[in-house]
Write a protein that binds this DNA or RNA. Structure first.
Lengths: 214, 214
DNA sequence: ACCTGTGAAATCGTTCACAGCA
DNA sequence: TGCTGTGAACGATTTCACAGGT
């Protein structure tokens, strides 16, 4: 085990390993080797061993990893044994679609409240989640115990919304606005920029013929 | 200029530069230096010059880059001067939310058709886009000139849907199902895995106190 | 015989530093 | 003087290859 900085690339892969272990557990497998795991997605087995070695020595030489044991370890490492409450700012199409995104529930995240500036929307309910006035964000976030915020507003408001979120003491933010945001070091900000992904497809199609692959 | 392989990290940054150039052009700036661009997002100016140098010598020593010229060059390189027609498979919350996602229109992408397996949905219209039977995908895709597919179905169907898409001759695919998919080399597959992003936030909150940042 | 854990090598990406042109 | 384009240094990540445990 090494307690140095762990790269996000590594933790992202842990998510993938965990999913696979959940499947293996459901299928009744008792053990699995890194080679075996590597073949499922096409990864290198050394990478899997290295990723896991960041957190401890979970394997047994000559045998592999015990599926159930590793599953529990990864669940704990990723914090998936804790419940989180999510507030989504922006009750447009995207915000409401996310409200009942199955991935949230699956991952122990619960959408507790939506926020918008539109008078028409405030007070209404979407998928059992109430839409509040964005000006009451800090108050509601505190009252509801919200610890994760999702930014689903147009790009031009995103930075201001982020600042409001940070001011309310929330430390984990997911941003869907297609613009890079600036935040302090202690905030975990994850931007999902669909426009960049689209333009990446566009680039591929423009130069077409040449290689693709993820 | 070097015609070697260009990394996706580079083309992703081109998207960001282009956005910025569009703003600069709107503000009436005539020229901009790499140093100046670098300060807007906090990047290194050498990286910007290197990224651009992959595609040609666009700058002028002592001056910088001509905003309008570079804007047009990048638009062309990213293929944003071409129109694309999108088919979305899965007319659930996510699929329909994407249907009128503003980023599509902005980027010269047009959602031409939705596809679903649910009899109730087939034949109805969402935001002026018709929902077709997924079994007719190849036929409709061909008739409508669809060249980009979006997978917005549950994870367990995603691989099969991808194979159907590839079989119909489409080369660019965006996948929202939280599972890594396998595709041939000549297909450009971009997976946007919200579950991994969520688990990344969860990991951060679990080990909290320690550093965040994008 | 099999499989992990890990140094060492290879690859990929970023940043530095400066030559060279306007 | 100001700024680009780029080789060289640096840093991060991946892969190789094998020692060592069961």
């Amino acid at each position: 085990m090494k307690s140095e900085k762990i790269s996000e690339l590594t933790t992202n892969r842990l998510s993938i390993y965990l999913r696979c272990l959940n499947e293996l557990a459901a299928e009744g497998s008792k053990t699995v080797s890194s080679d075996n795991l590597a073949k499922r997605f096409h990864l290198n087995s050394a990478q899997i061993r290295k990723d896991l070695a960041c957190f401890g020595e979970f394997g047994v030489r000559g045998v592999g990893y015990y599926v159930e044991d590793l599953r529990q370890q990864l669940t704990k490492i990723l914090g998936l044994d804790h419940h989180h409450r999510v507030g989504i700012i922006g009750a447009g199409r995207l915000g409401t679609a996310l409200t009942d995104y199955y991935g949230f529930r699956q991952t122990n995240f619960e959408v507790a409240a939506l926020f918008d500036a539109d008078r028409e929307k405030i007070g209404t309910v979407v998928s059992d989640v109430k839409i509040y006035d964005v000006r009451d964000f800090a108050k509601i976030a505190d009252r509801q115990g919200i610890d994760v915020a999702v930014i689903a507003v147009p790009a031009e408001y995103a930075q201001r919304v982020l600042e409001m979120i940070v001011a309310s003491g929330i430390k984990a933010v997911m941003n869907f606005a297609p613009t890079p945001l600036l935040a302090d070091e202690e905030i975990k900000l994850k931007t999902i920029d669909l426009t960049i992904s689209l333009e990446s497809l566009s680039y591929f199609l423009a130069g077409s013929g040449k290689n693709g692959k993820e």
